[in-house]
């Protein structure tokens, strides 16, 4: 496991529910979560040792999620520009118990945790057996489209 600079926290402060794996190969590598208010978070796998897997956890807006899924933004751009300005580095054991958590920032991340410049999404990165996942992802970003359309319509009416 790479050494990490950041502020250690006593506990992971978020209560998140997993929605769908966005990248999967013999295990989840990028998973979409949400909190009780409907805010989205991504869990990005970045490291492992004998005891734990390490995940970078950071909030994404629906808009940024859509831009990522539609290949307008790369995973690298999401990680280097988190909405909140920081990321959690979460060490989870096999029972998904948090063993260590850091608050860290993009410029503190080891190079090996930062995706490549061309880390754009592709639905081929989903597990091929997970036929419902693609629909679920599309549904999530479609909801956002509806909200955006509504907002645009209201903006136009108000301007008129």
């Amino acid at each position: 496991m790479q050494s990490l600079t950041g502020n250690p926290l006593k506990t992971f402060p978020l209560h998140l529910r997993d929605i769908v794996d966005l990248i999967y190969f013999d295990g989840p590598l990028l998973t979409l979560f949400e909190n009780q208010y409907g805010d989205y978070y991504l869990y990005h796998w970045c490291d492992v040792d004998q005891r734990c897997n390490r995940w970078l956890v950071f909030r994404v807006t629906q808009k940024f999620l859509r831009l990522y899924i539609t290949q307008k933004l790369s995973l690298r751009e999401l990680i280097l520009n988190p909405v909140d300005g920081f990321l959690y580095a979460l060490d989870l054991d096999d029972d998904l118990i948090c063993q260590q958590v850091y608050l860290t920032s993009p410029n503190q991340l080891p190079d090996r945790y930062v995706p490549a410049v061309d880390s754009y999404y592709d639905f081929a990165k989903l597990d091929k057996t997970d036929t419902e996942a693609k629909l679920l992802v599309l549904q999530r970003i479609e909801e956002d489209w509806s909200e955006l359309k509504q907002w645009w319509k209201q903006s136009i009416l108000q301007a008129a």
């Binding site: 190969f25 013999d26 295990g27 796998w45 995973l75 090996r112 995706p115 880390s119």
Partner: peptide, 12 residues
């Protein structure tokens, strides 16, 4: 996989 996860050898 490495584009998204440069450390992927550790898992894969």
């Amino acid at each position: 996989l490495k584009k998204d996860h440069p450390n992927i050898q550790e898992s894969l």
